[in-house]
Design a protein around this nucleic acid. Structure first.
Lengths: 211, 211
DNA sequence: ATGCTTGCTGAATGACCACTCAGGATGCTA
DNA sequence: TAGCATCCTGAGTGGTCATTCAGCAAGCAT
């Protein structure tokens, strides 16, 4: 077999394939509905290999969570940096969370993650880290805005908490296809709240909005 | 055996005991972790009886959901009616959701319900109905406030959506014991948002607040 | 070449659990 | 009192799965 090049890589690729397969299955069936056999089938390998690499089903699920988390953030941080001022960045966050990028189709996973976090320490850790990261970014953007005069929140810390929570709450509706809740509406509702909270006057320099 | 009085009642009482036991177990172990055997043990009956009354584990879970929903609402509606004006009613909602009454310890269940609702139509129906009821009440209270001049939302429909969503989002933090999130903070954050959204000027006639 | 390590497989194994069922008790109706 | 319906029990039963394991393949060091 063609070695050297593959020797070290093939196993890693296999591992990666399994993780990706896990994500696919979990998205489809939910955490509770995911079986080792499903993962193996999706990855085109044996059940044995899944266990060989991850030790247990729980291990595979956990690895997939971590992967999701990183994936989402790398994607996000990269695009956020490309935006110009605080207003644009905030607007970008409103749109990203609503549906662009890796978040699409992930809100369902977050709902499941929250429920799991009630009992599974691993899930709890991932969700906490995710949440903290998001709030940190939000806080930074707000501080930037305060610094350059675009925002004037009466209490930035509270605004962060509220805006982050509002997003989660809207996400529930979005994930469950509440009639009348669309990504557009999500963005609109959140953005208006941000305007209220932060006293934004500038009309958000349109041209970036629905994209 | 003492009949007549018990004849018709005993079975019903048994059934009820099983439903209550189901709630206890679900709260403790989560939906996914609840076994027929757990319910039977908690209720002090046989597994057979659980199935006899509810047909299946899913049936029992479903019955318990419905019961929870009603329980919460009866409790809520009753207390709400006792409040005086729209401002007091809104304040009451802020406090109830944060932790008084039947909601205590239930937010965890709601998180699980949301996750289940992604795939289980029964759960989805319960959650939708619950959500709609809550939003309807909120809307009614707001309309009252608009009518008597206490509130002046720029868009009542949107305010309802946002305030309801914010509550869900804050509930996630509360249910997961996010450090720094307490029932007091929950109420405070939500109330401030309501003030912003609805342009409340009146200082919420204290004396009802933390109760 | 010999034997070791790593990656991998597929066929058990055995635990766990929802659900079934045969039957027992009780009291009602006729 | 005989027959019937309701309630209830506890011992199965069968299916589903995670996990284990014996063993194969293939490169690597010696």
């Amino acid at each position: 077999m063609a070695r050297v090049a593959l020797a070290a890589k093939a196993p890693e690729e296999r591992r990666e394939r399994i993780m990706l397969a896990t994500i696919v299955v979990v998205r489809e069936r939910g955490f509770a509905g995911t079986r080792v056999a499903d993962i193996a089938r999706e990855a085109g390998t044996s059940q044995g290999l899944v266990l060989y690499h991850f030790g247990s089903l729980a291990g595979a699920l956990s690895a997939c969570l971590t992967m999701l988390e990183d994936e989402f953030y790398d994607d996000f941080a990269q695009h956020l940096a490309a935006e110009n001022g605080p207003v644009e960045r905030l607007r970008f966050m409103a749109e990203l969370a609503a549906g662009r990028g890796a978040a699409v189709g992930n809100w369902g996973l977050w709902l499941e993650l929250w429920a799991r976090a009630l009992r599974d320490p691993d899930s709890r850790a991932v969700r906490e880290s995710q949440d903290r990261r998001w709030r940190t970014v939000l806080r930074r953007v707000i501080d930037e805005g305060v610094a350059d005069g675009s925002f004037s929140p009466s209490n930035a810390a509270k605004s962060v908490l509220r805006l982050a929570a509002l997003m989660d709450g809207l996400a529930v509706q979005l994930a469950l296809n509440e009639p009348g809740m669309t990504t557009r509406k999500f963005t609109e509702l959140w953005w208006e709240s941000a305007v209220l909270e932060l006293g934004i006057t500038e009309p958000a320099k349109r041209g970036k909005s629905p994209r």
